[in-house]
Design a protein around this nucleic acid. Structure first.
Lengths: 346, 346
DNA sequence: GTGAAAGCGCTAACAC
DNA sequence: GTGTTAGCGCTTTCAC
């Protein structure tokens, strides 16, 4: 049976209740409960005991209004259901929760479309003490406005100007994966990028690493072998067709994420192509599913990115100094079963 | 160079600023901006224009304190980085954001350990108007307390008592997957469950469906073929060893999630077992990666669970009536490449 | 249709 | 070491 679920609100203990039963002023309760100095040890203990008994917790809205801090952090990501992003969020949330911060997630819609980071400022405005931007940058105006309002900002992925920024060396990612393929003897290598004309910096840099590796080998890549893959499985699936329906198809493909690489493997199986006999595939991330399909990939510790960003955020909000230099986490190539020398070399 | 990032806070327009420049009282501004009646149309328009010019947005903390509502919803999940949960969160967040609600995520630590839902009440207390519990139930005391404080609650997965609860018919999930295996001729079927002694209701029901299907076929399942898989890939990987290192191993395995099924496939490949020739595998979820490995599975629309819950939440908070009957979303078996008749029948 | 004023529950000076 | 008090920026009666 349908019914209204709005219930009569029961009274909650307020700071006044605690003060009254402890026989002290609200100021003392506030100090005691926040661990501030200038409270007699026995007073503090009594107040803490009474607060527990009364199940008192400071109202965050009242606290925020009076103190100007909300103890909440926003994490903005392009899409909440991507493997990479969900792991970043998980890593950040665990650290933030431990430090007593709430985590507000804001999805920006898929790359390039839907809600922009700028609009995300709506939910963010005065609601959070800090913003962790994952693979998304704020416009100059928005950035300036948020900073001038005292918002702490940390970037994961892109470089920040004047804010901590962390991630991986994406040029090196591209170089590593490509050099592996080149070493095996491949010379025609397809690249599955994110979105065409995406402003994101990671794909751009991975491609740059790709080209650097070619140059180091004294070769020149074929730009007609660059196709979009939209950072998801479906995109990778479609990318293979684009790559293979060419006069001179590649013998290997470098996908800028494991999820896109999965799409390639799927499409290859459907076409009756054997990986790595007919086609080599290398990805980026070391997705949980990569060992399952034996995908060769460039490993990074994604959850740690989120945790690291959260720690940096907490440092900033504690008024401590943090490094503004780009922090790159270690990466490494993991060779599994999807890469081998090209057919003509065997 | 390290440096402090705490910046001097610039002033933001307050409701008083808007009232002053519009030449009206703050009460009128408040009414106008929230679309309340009893504001002259031209007054409203003027106020809206001025608010835009001043880039005014109501301070959520002040608003919350005065009105008692926060326009924020908590989504509590066992683990934020699981495929299922990240998709539920994504589905919910999109709907909540559209309706102007913030989404606060709270991870409960892996099933059974770490933070409990009860502790999640900390971040939740007075911080949110509603709580969406995914695959987790509140203790009776906690539930009662939250409800008496006016907290709106929606369950995804478990049944709620007196609150909307949605999900799928998990008994039917178990029956469907098992009947498929039975139809193919399997009689020794392994079950990869979640955590042993997990209080979760979904695994329990899927197992019940499993047993129902056996009964309908006039057979009895072997309880020694029930092993835990912890709902992740690694758990599935280990589960296969437990299942196969038996005197009379199963010819098919039913994993209660696709991620655990992936682990089975991984372990099977490492053992040199061919799926489905040597072993059939069926999962639950229809994970994005399932088409990649050709996994036979029971499909459900996970993001829609989150979206549905969010819509129900918004209804409740709008004071509208919602159904308290269990809402089960459709499911269907998707036959792909990991199931076939057992070896002895071919 | 609009305004005045009383809070909402806390924090932070400042006084003692 | 503790208390008093003035806000924080809104919403919401209750007048007019």
């Amino acid at each position: 049976m349908p019914t209204s679920l709005q219930t009569i609100r029961r009274e909650r203990a307020t700071i006044e209740d605690v003060a009254a039963t402890a026989g002290v002023s609200v100021a003392t309760v506030s100090r005691a409960l926040r661990g501030l100095p200038n409270v007699a040890i026995h007073t503090r203990e009594r107040i803490e005991r009474i607060a527990t008994e009364l199940d008192y917790r400071a109202d965050p809205a009242a606290s925020r209004l009076a103190a100007g801090r909300s103890r909440a952090i926003a994490v903005a990501v392009p899409m909440l259901d991507g493997w990479y992003f969900s792991h970043v969020v998980a890593g950040a949330e665990a650290v933030l929760a431990d430090a007593g911060y709430d985590t507000i997630v804001v999805g920006l819609g898929t790359y390039g479309e839907g809600r922009q980071v700028l609009e995300a400022a709506g939910p963010i405005y005065r609601r959070v003490d800090g913003l962790i931007c994952v693979d998304a940058t704020l416009g100059d105006d928005e950035f300036g406005r948020l900073r001038s309002e005292g918002m702490a900002i940390v970037y994961i992925g892109p470089d920040g100007s004047g804010v901590p920024s962390l991630g991986i060396d994406d040029v090196e990612v591209g170089r590593l994966a490509t050099a592996h393929l080149l070493d095996l003897g491949h010379t025609r290598i397809g690249v599955v990028n994110g979105q065409p004309e995406d402003g994101s910096v990671a794909p751009f840099r991975r491609q740059r690493g790709f080209e650097l590796a070619f140059a180091a080998a004294g070769l020149t890549p074929d730009p007609s072998l660059y196709v979009p893959g939209y950072f998801d499985i479906g995109g990778g699936y479609e990318a293979l067709a684009m790559l293979l329906d060419r006069p001179d198809p590649p013998t290997a493909v470098f996908a800028f994420s494991d999820e896109m690489a999965f799409g390639l493997l799927w499409a290859a199986r459907e076409r009756g192509l054997s990986v790595p006999d007919d086609l080599s595939v290398v990805g980026v991330d070391d997705h949980d599913g990569s060992p399952v399909v034996g995908l060769t990939t460039v490993h990074q510790d994604v959850a740690e990115h989120g945790a690291h960003a959260a720690r940096a955020m907490i440092e900033i909000l504690s008024g401590r100094e943090v490094s503004l230099d780009r922090q790159n986490a270690p990466i490494r190539l993991i060779e599994r079963l999807t890469t081998a020398p090209p057919p003509h070399l065997r």
